[in-house]
């Protein structure tokens, strides 16, 4: 369960009557444009979906939780998402459908 980027591309190709290659360009362009806006420190507002913001963090002294050694954490900027009202309600209304929490490897990246 769940949708990956390639499955999103396939869905856009089918629903938008595009080739997969063309749908891939569209999906990549959307997320590229969003990433660039966040890089500029700009928020993104998608009505009915939600908004993304960038929050700055000051440097602080952290600790390695295993060894207790102090670790300096540099200043950083992190992206945040706030779900829009419409999507928030849509998601909450899907509560009767059980979540399939396949693996919880939500940090997965590539």
């Amino acid at each position: 369960m769940g949708m990956t980027k390639s499955e999103l591309i396939e869905a856009i190709a089918a629903r938008g009557e595009l080739t997969k290659a063309r749908a891939e360009q569209v999906v990549n362009c959307v997320f590229d444009a969003m990433t660039e806006a966040l890089q500029r420190g700009e928020g993104i507002e998608i009505r009915g979906f939600g908004s993304f913001t960038v929050r700055p963090y000051k440097p602080y002294a952290g600790r390695n939780p295993r060894t207790g050694q102090p670790v300096p954490v540099p200043a950083k900027r992190l992206p945040f998402f706030k779900v829009g009202k419409e999507l928030k309600e849509l998601v909450n209304n899907s509560r009767h459908i059980a979540l399939v929490d396949d693996d919880d490897d939500d940090n997965h990246d590539d």
Partner: peptide
């Protein structure tokens, strides 16, 4: 269509993984 498809997917109780984004 991109955002609509994502909304519908989440509205079906499915998560979405966009590699490189989140």
């Amino acid at each position: 269509l991109v955002f609509e498809t994502m909304k519908e997917t989440l509205g079906r109780g499915e998560k979405i993984k966009i590699s490189g984004f989140g």
